[in-house]
Structure formats: structure tokens, C-alpha cells
């Protein structure tokens, strides 16, 4: 573990995990910074959940390691400063929201009065007052996520690890949860959240780590990972060879079905390409210029990896 990585609230280095012949994580290294939301992004099966389960001690790596606030994850005390929400939020039948939270607060070492006071504060903060004495298993998905977040914050942990926290939420519940996460970030917590919803995570995350089939494709701030300021997209029935030749110097160019995408820092390139298409006599549907996003980054990384 490098000194710089070990200083981060969460530092992962060379983590590898295999299930039989499947490599779930392949030498992944990343770090999570305090006061930031880091998005652990990638498609289903990328290894996101495995990484989070290793960090909270539910799975063991085959090689590599990780530290949380400098403590190696093999030590159970490393989990003390961590709040975690699993992907599937199931609660025990028969317990009310308050009973569940109080029991878990006490497992964290709080006295009963301290647990009661902490639970009351969190329930009020997350708008769960009306659900205080309701069976926790009967809560709606949105309320369950909130209850999960309240559980994760019981011990006021400096690190939050959230597995697909917004995956099954409606837009309103998602927006509410996102604002709660931004609030927690501002309180200085280091937040690592996994998601396969690349576009929706973009406004929420300060940094991203992109995984695919267990391999880390990229890690860094969103701004630094997006290499250009603009994308010019040309929709056309087919990309003729003449057009490919004429745009070969405008790298990087991506072709996907009937669409050609050019990454550029020149905001006027769209006009130039339109003129080029007209000059070549190529039929096209539209030429649009927009800002690149995480989805573009992910596919460009996949393409780069494939061609490399």
C-alpha cells in the first residue's frame, strides 16, 4: 500500500477476487477522498458489489488489500468507521423501524439512552417520523432506502459505502436520496457508491472509478477523465469510406451503427463537419454538438481497451 493511498479514508490496492474461473475483481486499486462522492460505475457483473462486500468484510479477497482510515480490512475494527447499505435492502419481519435502529445502534456500543436519542435524531432528519413505529419490512422502497441510510449513519461514520442506492427508486425518491447524500458529503464524509446508471451518477459524483468485468478502466475526477469539451454526433444511414478517410485526422472518432461521434475541444467543429458532409455528398440525418458524459467515457474506454 503506497503512503498516499493509505492516507485516504478508503484505499484499495491490487484487489483480486475469483469465483471459480470467473474473475470478479482483477487487481483493482482506487481511493476514496473525504468530502467527496466517488462513483463506482460499471455494468452489471463489473465487480462493484464484490468490491463493496470485500470492504465491509462480507467477502475475502484472493490477493491485494484495502484499508479504511488506515486499518486493514481483515481487522473487524476497520468496519467501525463504515456505514453500509447493501444493494438489496431486506429488513427483518416483526421489528419496527425504531426497534431495528435502536438494536443496531446498541450493537455499535451505544447505551440505550444514547441509542434512543441518536435514532430519534436520524428518524427526524430523514423524514421517517411517521414510520417510527411501523414494521420496517412493510416500508416502501424509497422509505427503505432512507431507513438504510439512517442505519448506515447510526455510528456517525466518516465513510459511507452504498451499493446501488438509487437503482430501484422512482425519480422523486431518487432525487430525495441524492440530496441527502450531497448533504452527507458536505459534512465531510467519504462516500463510495456503486451504480450502473452512468448518466444519473454524473451530477452526483465528484470522482468516478469505472469497472468492467473486474478490471478498473479509469479512476479520477469526472472533469479530468472526460478528455474533450465537446462531442459532435452525426446520424447517418451508413458511414461511407470517403467520410472515414476525410475524418481520420479528427481522432478520437467512434462509429456505432449509423452514428459517428467525434470528440473535440473545438466548439465549431460541428459546422466544419456539416460542410464536409455536404462537400462529399453524403446523406445524413443530423449533426449535433453536445458535452460529453460518463456514458461516452465508458464506451470510449471500452473501445480503447478493445482496440488496444
Amino acid at each position: 500500500m503506497t503512503r498516499l493511498a493509505a492516507a485516504a479514508p478508503v484505499a484499495v490496492e491490487g484487489l483480486t477476487k475469483r469465483y471459480g474461473t470467473v474473475t470478479a475483481l482483477d487487481g483493482v486499486s482506487l481511493s476514496v477522498t473525504a468530502g467527496e462522492i466517488t462513483g463506482l460505475l460499471g455494468p452489471n457483473g463489473a465487480g462493484k458489489t464484490t468490491l463493496l462486500r470485500i470492504l465491509v468484510g462480507l467477502a475475502r479477497p484472493d490477493s491485494g488489500g484495502a484499508t479504511i482510515l488506515g486499518r486493514p480490512i481483515a481487522d473487524p475494527s476497520a468496519r467501525a468507521p463504515v456505514g453500509f447499505i447493501p444493494e438489496v435492502v431486506a429488513f427483518p419481519a416483526g421489528a419496527t423501524l425504531a426497534e431495528f435502529l435502536i438494536f443496531h445502534a446498541r450493537l455499535l456500543g451505544m447505551t440505550r439512552p444514547a441509542a434512543l436519542s441518536r435514532v430519534d435524531a436520524l428518524v427526524a432528519r430523514f423524514g421517517l417520523g411517521e414510520e417510527h413505529d411501523r414494521a420496517i419490512a412493510s416500508l416502501s422502497k424509497g422509505l427503505r432506502r432512507r431507513a438504510g441510510l439512517a442505519h448506515a449513519l447510526l455510528g456517525d461514520p466518516p465513510v459511507l459505502l452504498l451499493d446501488e442506492p438509487t437503482a430501484d427508486l422512482d425519480p422523486v425518491a431518487r432525487r430525495d436520496l441524492e440530496s441527502l447524500l450531497v448533504e452527507e458529503k458536505r459534512r465531510g464524509r467519504a462516500i463510495l457508491l456503486s451504480s450502473h446508471l452512468l448518466l444519473e451518477m454524473e451530477p452526483l459524483t465528484d470522482r468516478v472509478a469505472m469497472l468492467n468485468r473486474g478490471a478498473l478502466l479509469a479512476e479520477g475526477s469526472v472533469g479530468s477523465l472526460l478528455p474533450t469539451s465537446h462531442l459532435v454526433e452525426v446520424s447517418l444511414p451508413d458511414v461511407p469510406p470517403a467520410l472515414r478517410e476525410a475524418t481520420a485526422h479528427l481522432l478520437p472518432v467512434f462509429h456505432e451503427g449509423g452514428r459517428m461521434t467525434v470528440a473535440t475541444n473545438d466548439p465549431n467543429l460541428g459546422g466544419e463537419i456539416t460542410r464536409l458532409l455536404d462537400g462529399l455528398g453524403v446523406r445524413y440525418d443530423a449533426v449535433t454538438t453536445r458535452r460529453p458524459n460518463l456514458r461516452d467515457l465508458f464506451f470510449s474506454l471500452l473501445e480503447g481497451k478493445g482496440s488496444g
Binding site: 468484510g57 462480507l58 475494527s77 468496519r79 453500509f84 447493501p86 431486506a90 450493537l107
Partner: peptide, 17 residues
């Protein structure tokens, strides 16, 4: 049942052996 349904995870992600 607690282990199979994943409910035990709420406890085991804490600093509890």
C-alpha cells in the same frame, strides 16, 4: 434463514466477529 436472506449482513458489516 437470517443468513440465507442476507439479513445477517446488517450485523456482520459492523465491527462484530
Amino acid at each position: 434463514g437470517e443468513v440465507e436472506s442476507g439479513l445477517a449482513g446488517w450485523i456482520l458489516v459492523k465491527p462484530i466477529r
